[in-house]
Amino acid sequence: MRERDLMLLHYITGIGILVFGSIHVATIFFTYPFQDTIWETTLRFDSIPYAVLPVYRNALLAASLFGLLLCTTVHAMNGLRSIITELVGARKRWVEALLFAVGVFLLVYGTRTILIAHSLV
């Protein structure tokens, strides 16, 4: 891939994170079945396991969560590639291969979590 296209992808995924990330935070803020805000519940660690999973039975919300996962993975791995390459001081195959592998793993593992949450009865 040309560097220019990667940079465009970086901008697009950045905007994607802004959109999907807002949905992600808003979802949890507004649909969480407790009186306290999610933030306080999270900090206090007294929420009930699985309480947030039913939200993602909604296909649109699950899809937006997948969008967030995809955008964040691409954006983060591309950003880390740039930072690590500049830190090492030269372009290295292993840096790019490692980050690609980590990205694929995160995508697969995260998608699995979303799928399981989505199919929860």
Partner: peptide, 28 residues
């Protein structure tokens, strides 16, 4: 911030995955 948030993102994906049974389980 980019590096720290990336690390948080990785930890978040791993942690939420853990809640639904870890890497070997494919149902709730």
């Amino acid at each position: 911030s980019g590096v720290v948030v990336s690390l948080y993102f990785i930890a978040h994906v791993l942690e939420t995955g853990n809640f639904v049974g870890g890497i070997t389980v494919w149902s709730v």
